[in-house]
Design a protein around this nucleic acid. Structure first.
Lengths: 161, 161
DNA sequence: AATAAAATGTTATAATATTGCATTTTATCC
DNA sequence: GGATAAAATGCAATATTATAACATTTTATT
């Protein structure tokens, strides 16, 4: 398997641009309004492949000279982006990350590196079906699942040895 | 499969007592000190099969007339209990729940009912191995995984129909 | 009993998130 | 195009969750 892009050096502007393009398309389809503010928040979320906290996003917006937005501004934008499947919230980090396969409804799994924080989203069918089977056996009806795996990414493992 | 006990009406005092007994045994083995305070916190965590927030535990302790402990008191006790594998923290709820299979190191999965909050801990081999395979394929070394599944428990599904 | 280590108490504060209401912007209808 | 309603944003206050720093007490060990 080729390494996920997130682990390779690359131009994040391209990631941001792609994310914005996809987002515009999805919002159009959904009849949702991707405003300037929401695009800015989405850009920040895509500026690295690391989860960003709401207050970190807030700072980035301030730095950019967009005035000094207050917390609700960011949280509302994040809510909107989550509702439209454009970002995910990582509960174990209280942080947000851009969705890799936006638009499609999906439960994904996250591989979070504890060293470099780079986080990769995966959508493993075998994990999904294992979860499904597990829940069904207990007559539990899944609405949503959160799978967050913390460990060491390939790069950071190498760096140690 | 028989329904997990958590979903059945039952005497929580028995759960609490069992949890305390197991905890004492484990702490003894670990050379860890299960103090009165820590036992009280563990009891509270086992008083229902619902995750409890730190501040909720704090209130329960106050109600019991143990003075008015401050937040660090509870957080420290919870840290201790987590370190000794006696409680789990559910990141998606910022809440704590007693560990069903204390002592043994394990990554478990949680089935959280969004209606009644009753939460069942499961240790599914197929989920674990799917996660393992998924991570290995990406050369990711797992340190810890958090799997929290929100949905409807059998009881609450029935109640709706 | 003296000492060190561990646990707890206490105060303050950090970090994350939401409520409620005012204002502005955008879409829609006539 | 202007009136109106709906959506989005601004803003102030505050709620919720968690930790830091330091004093005191308790426990274990000598």
């Amino acid at each position: 398997m080729t390494a996920p892009t997130a682990y390779e050096k690359h131009d994040h502007h391209q990631c941001i641009d792609e994310a914005l393009l996809a987002a515009r398309k999805i919002c159009k389809k959904n009849g949702a309004r991707l405003t300037a503010l929401r695009e800015q928040v989405l850009s920040k979320v895509w500026q690295s492949h690391r989860p960003l906290g709401a207050y970190a996003i807030l700072e980035l917006l301030s730095d950019e000279g967009q005035g000094h937005p207050a917390p609700p501004t960011v949280y509302r934008a994040l809510d909107f982006l989550q509702e439209n499947g454009l970002v995910h919230r990582l509960a174990s980090l209280n942080a947000y990350i851009g969705c890799d396969a936006p638009g499609r409804a999906h439960d994904s799994q996250f591989l979070i590196c504890r060293h470099c924080q780079i986080t990769v989203e995966v959508a493993s069918d075998s994990v999904s079906s294992a979860l499904k089977t597990c829940a069904e056996r207990r007559d539990f009806a899944i609405l949503h699942s959160s799978v967050e795996i913390v460990g060491e990414c390939p790069n950071c493992q190498q760096a140690q040895s």
